[in-house]
């Protein structure tokens, strides 16, 4: 009845004193790097509307849409969970469509209309999805929540999800490490019933 788990290799490195030189970061060759230094003249100007407020800014072209919101506009409701397009915490609505704001540069959104979690409530009344998330306890730590709600707003607008399984599938770009999925689906169903 006894069985060993699959073989694991023993991988201690053999050569005890190898010397090597490595770039520790993203591996940008230094020659390229030196040239790539930004100066003020490298700034790009961007005009966009966020939650119905118009902004014109001069930005480092490397600024992601997420960092524009969090660092420059102090709209920290949009969250950074990975900064590499894997978690959905940074989901915002661009012209009504849901996107991962960490995975795109702010400079690409000149003239766009952006809606973040801070822009969903109207005249002090919560958006039906916000209320449904509270009613169903569709969050715990709350860190994925703005992304989940913005994603759900986009989902409802897309009109593709009808069943619980379809909601689950189409909400799978938004990770919730607290594991509130059961309640997230229930909250979205409640909001769907209202719309």
């Amino acid at each position: 009845m006894t069985k060993k788990p699959s073989e694991k290799s023993s991988g201690a490195s053999k050569d005890p004193t190898r010397r090597r030189k490595v770039a520790s970061g993203a591996g940008v060759p230094s020659a390229v790097a030196a040239k790539a230094r930004p100066t003020t003249s490298d700034m790009v100007s961007v005009s966009l509307v966020v939650n119905n407020v118009h902004h014109s800014l001069a930005l480092d072209p490397r600024t992601t849409l997420l960092d524009l919101l969090r660092e420059h506009l102090d709209l920290t409701g949009t969250k950074k969970g990975c900064d590499q397009g894997q978690c959905g915490a940074c989901t915002v609505l661009v012209d009504g469509r849901r996107i991962n704001s960490c995975l795109t540069f702010a400079a690409m959104y000149d003239g766009a209309q952006i809606t973040t979690i801070e822009g969903l409530a109207r005249n002090g009344a919560l958006h039906p999805l916000q209320q449904a998330f509270i009613d169903h306890d569709a969050f715990q730590c709350g860190y994925c929540t703005p992304g989940q709600i913005c994603s759900a707003v986009g989902l409802l607008a897309e009109g593709r999800a009808k069943t619980a399984d379809e909601i689950r599938e189409l909400m799978s770009g938004n990770i919730c490490r607290c594991g509130a999925y059961t309640n997230i689906v229930a909250a979205i169903q409640q909001a769907m019933g209202q719309s």
Partner: peptide, 9 residues
């Protein structure tokens, strides 16, 4: 990304 390091491993 520009910091370089040498090690004795």
């Amino acid at each position: 990304s520009l910091v370089t390091v040498e090690y004795e491993e």
